[in-house]
Computed example of a mutant assay.
Amino acid sequence: MSRHDVAVAGVGMHPWGKWGKNFVEYGVHAARAALADSSIAWQDVDLVVGGETVRNGYAGYVAGSTFASALGWNGARIATSYAACATGAQALDTARARILAGMSEVALVVGADTTPKGFLAPNAGERWEDPDWLRFRLLGMTNPAYFALYARRRMDLYGATPEDFAAVKVKNARHGLENPNARYRKEVSVEDVLTSAVVSDPLHLLDICATSDGAAAVVLCSTEYAAKHGIGGGVRINAISTVTPTFPNTVIDMPLLSTDSANAVGAPEQTFKEAIGQAAYDEAGIDPADVSVAEVYDLSTALELDWIEDLQLCKRGEAEALLRAGDTTIGGRIPVNPSGGLACFGEAVPAQALAQVCEIAWQLRGRATGRQVEGARVGITANQGLFGHGSSVILSV
């Protein structure tokens, strides 16, 4: 057992969709589902960590307190985390740290969101030191345009095609058919993707995930508590990586895109997203070859292919070959996004890293009905928070 291990006592979700309700309702639903799954009473929870949701007013900014209040004051300590799309994993890390320090026995981590229609936009007001605000307002670089640059890079460097990107969507849509929490549960064809509206060339509408309402929750406890009470089914979190780049050995993007001056001082050892995954492997004491299943951040179809390589599930430039061979589908060598991914869920930002952990926990317990990866023993997740932060979580049974 790793000195970093904590037990996953229970997991729960509120289905993703556009429900038009307050985010608290979704979070409470997911929290109660996770508590029921754990068989731990709410009164025994001594820590609540909420994933902050910046679009939902003051209650969203103090999400830990908001969820604790909505569930009924029980005297638990509270904390709130925000890290964009990596919010859920950072919230988990806060809970894990207190458990490993002996300051908590049972922690409830909740993320929930109510999102506006359309692609996510920056919050109101001028924020001249915010790279996201600058990217949106000064460069006109919305998220779909940002994703399209990644996609175009794969085409130029590795020979990826729009058909490859469409095949990612086809795979994930098929995976999500039997997922009761997925928003989109409909098969699509490559032709459906390629004939959908072009949003930012080479990406079409069906290449890009939607925004959604939804929630996910995880109950963590010490391994001793889990053993004593016979809970959790043996699922443990072995590592949570939230590392930042290490200058000058890590760059935000591919070293092949480095400027001449950067190349003059030596090529970086790894990219930022590779650093996130490697830190998780190092902490868990495992190799990429040990991974049975992965849930990765498919904001666009092309980004899924990047993450497969960043997590070292194949060599750089080989993700398309894995996809074409069927290795990343359920039944293949390394199934990726058996939940259906964000392609089937959409973005509910504070919840999505937690939703990935929920899926991996179900997979490791053999409870992912209709989408089960047989014999899954180790799972990894990945999210990018943009501009120097992200997350990866490793679970095993």
Rank of each mutant, 00 (worst) to 15 (best):
M1D: 03
S2R: 14
R3S: 13
D5M: 01
V6E: 06
A7H: 00
A7G: 08
V8L: 05
G12K: 07
M13S: 08
H14R: 10
W16T: 00
V24C: 04
G27E: 07
A30G: 09
A33S: 14
A34Y: 00
I40V: 15
V45E: 03
L47V: 02
N56V: 02
G60Q: 03
V62D: 00
F67S: 06
A68Q: 08
A70P: 14
G75T: 14
I78L: 12
A79V: 00
T80V: 08
S81W: 01
S81K: 04
S81T: 04
S81N: 02
S81V: 01
C85L: 07
T87E: 03
G88S: 07
D93G: 09
I99F: 10
A101K: 10
G102I: 11
A107I: 13
A107E: 13
V109Q: 09
V110W: 11
D113R: 02
D113K: 10
T114M: 12
G118H: 15
L120K: 12
N123H: 02
G125I: 13
E126T: 13
R135I: 05
F136S: 12
R137C: 01
L138S: 12
F147P: 10
L149F: 14
L149P: 08
Y150I: 05
A151H: 09
D156C: 03
D156H: 11
A160M: 11
F165A: 05
K169Y: 10
V170Q: 09
N172P: 09
A173L: 14
H175S: 12
G176K: 14
N179L: 02
N181T: 00
V188H: 06
A197D: 15
V199F: 11
S200D: 12
S200T: 09
L205H: 05
I208E: 07
D213N: 12
D213W: 13
A215R: 09
A215F: 06
A217S: 14
V219C: 10
V219P: 11
L220E: 06
S222T: 14
R236L: 12
I240M: 00
S241G: 13
T242K: 08
T244I: 00
P245Q: 04
P248N: 03
T250N: 06
M254G: 01
A262I: 04
N263I: 05
N263L: 15
A264F: 05
G266F: 03
P268A: 14
A275C: 10
A275F: 05
I276K: 11
Q278L: 15
A279F: 09
A279S: 15
A280P: 07
D287A: 15
D287I: 00
Y297V: 12
S300C: 14
E304V: 02
D306R: 11
K315P: 11
E320M: 08
E320F: 02
E320S: 13
A321C: 04
L322Q: 06
L322S: 01
T328L: 02
G332H: 07
I334A: 02
V336G: 04
V336A: 00
P338M: 06
A343K: 15
F345I: 00
A351S: 13
Q352N: 13
Q352L: 02
A353N: 07
A355R: 04
A355E: 11
I360W: 01
I360M: 07
Q363I: 11
R367F: 07
V373H: 01
V373A: 03
G375C: 00
A376W: 03
V378F: 06
I380C: 10
T381D: 04
A382L: 11
L386W: 01
H389Q: 14
G390A: 07
S391E: 00
I394Q: 12
L395V: 08
